[in-house]
């Protein structure tokens, strides 16, 4: 070899782990944006539905039980963000399953790095993508009448919330990816997300629903997540909005990450 390197330091410092995690996060983010066919739908569909709803449901805003809004689009903004982030988070987990399927994950495992760092880096990539999505939806819809009452501060909270939700859902999906090592299995959970989203108050206020459907929306966590963000858009900052948009998702997120890490440990132990 033309130059001789110093033998690699055997230390496993915190700084090094951080650098490795960051490299994995960077890789997974870049990779996501290099697949327009996967990223496109999770960006375009939520906007399509928002545009569709804005035109279709303008008269619905005067219904009893409907909150005070400037336009239906303003009402839809929170749902658009959550919808995009939910669907987008499948992408990262499917990529992880593909890594396991085609052997790239083995290459990562061959490196003398912390196993946790490899996974956390991947998940951080999902979080970044979720935040970018949230920012993009807000930027696109705001000029068309989706005014955020809590202004830029609220928008920032929504972006942060998008990242946290992407991290939470991404972790759960990654647990599926690690357990099954199949991208199809991960994508197979997609209809579940769809159902979760529809049987919530994402597209219409809970106050206008009735019967069993209302009961399901009442216990669906997605309802509260969307309502938290919606409060930031329609009303302004409040403790309850912050709790629904940030604190509760964070708690779910921590549990979800632990599940994913546990699944990774199980996989490594069963080799």
């Amino acid at each position: 070899m033309s130059t001789v390197l110093q033998p690699v330091a055997a230390s496993r410092s915190f700084g090094l782990s951080l650098r490795q995690t960051r490299a994995m996060a960077w890789r997974s983010t870049k990779e996501t944006f290099r697949q327009p066919a996967l990223v496109g739908p999770s960006m375009i569909f939520p906007i399509f539905f928002a545009a569709l709803g804005a035109s279709s449901f303008s008269r619905a805003t005067s219904l009893p039980g409907f909150p005070k809004v400037e336009s239906f689009l303003q009402f839809s903004l929170a749902a658009t963000v959550v919808q995009g982030v939910l669907f987008g988070s499948v992408t990262g987990a499917a990529a992880l399953a593909t890594d396991i399927q085609n052997g790239f994950f083995d290459r990562l495992l061959l490196a003398p790095t912390s196993r946790t760092g490899i996974l956390i880096g991947r998940l951080a990539g999902s979080a970044i993508f979720g935040a970018v999505q949230a920012a993009a939806f807000i930027a696109v819809l705001w000029p068309f009448g989706a005014t955020i009452k809590s202004s830029f501060g609220g928008a920032l909270v929504m972006v942060l919330s998008g990242g946290i939700v992407a991290l939470a859902i991404g972790s759960l999906m990654s647990a599926v990816a690690i357990k099954t090592a199949s991208a199809e299995a991960v994508q197979g959970t997609f209809p579940l997300l769809f159902i979760l989203l529809f049987f919530s108050s994402a597209f219409f206020p809970r106050e206008t629903m009735s019967g069993l459907y209302r009961n399901i929306a009442d216990v669906n966590p997605i309802s509260y997540l969307v309502e938290g963000m919606r409060e930031l858009v329609l009303v302004g900052f409040s403790t309850s909005a912050m709790a629904k948009a940030i604190f509760i998702p964070t708690a779910i997120c921590v549990v979800a990450i632990l599940i994913a890490l546990r699944q990774l440990r199980v996989r490594l132990a069963s080799r």
Partner: peptide, 21 residues
């Protein structure tokens, strides 16, 4: 088969109130 059933139930449940317009 599932898609039309889902669409039917989810739409009529979510947008239940539009009939009151």
């Amino acid at each position: 088969l599932l898609m039309p059933i889902f669409t039917m139930i989810a739409f009529s449940g979510t947008f239940y109130a539009v009939t009151k317009i």
